[in-house]
Amino acid sequence: MLVAGIDVGSRATKAVVLDGERNLRACSVLRTRPPFPELARQALDEALSRGGLRGISPDYVATTGFGRYNVPFRDLQVTEITSAARGASFLYPSTRYVLDIGFQSTRAMKLGEGGRVREFHTNDKCAAGAGGFIERAARYLEVGLEKVGELSLRADNPQTISSVCAVLAESEIINHVSEGKTVENILRGAHLSLATRALALLRRVGLDGETTFVGGVVYQAGMVRSLEETLKVKLNVPAQPELVGALGAALLALQRLEKQGAIPKSPVEPAT
């Protein structure tokens, strides 16, 4: 018995394969590019291949992410909010809040029992409120995205970026560069700016319990530090944060199979 969760995100497409006991059997991450049906199939095939499961078709496929409807072989699609909540709750059963910062949007969720979403808010359609903003800043500063997190950690005088619009925020970055501010301090300013917006979202759902931070931006250590300083809490940070949505989708796939009686219900244990 195998199920798959595929998260077709705006920057990366992720696939997770679980067995009937909720063990992680395989995963993959590909850069998102059209056409999505082929991309999703490729992500799944790559995961299966890496897990030594080549040629095996999962019994159920659940998709999530903005491209979730463009996967013809799916059995079910769920929003990225539902899937991130389920994935985070599985990894950290006592988490009450989830912050998911993706490339295109940021979501704050309050969870109920079993990872059920009780309340949630997403950022408005504004590029300054999500991971894409950091990527654009890095591009302007001619820094590879993989180096952004470490550089940001080295900041000694973070520069304020106060604009709520990505275009204006980039103008602020240009000003900082022309004034001779260091790349480290500008990047940390960008992280703090994003953290402030995330705090506003989290405050709308409440912020009085264990909080898990997921999404590809988690890989940027400076972002985690900025968030923890801004939120004044210690965050749960998964080892593979970009896979949490796909994991949640796979878990929901299992739940559907259990509900349909295709497999017996098994107690939920955190994945290893």
């Binding site: 769920v78 539902t82 997403t122």
Partner: peptide, 17 residues
Amino acid sequence: DKPRNTIETFVESLLFD
């Protein structure tokens, strides 16, 4: 798209109870 995503999430929170 955005309200639809919000509604879907709300629906899922009730369906996957």
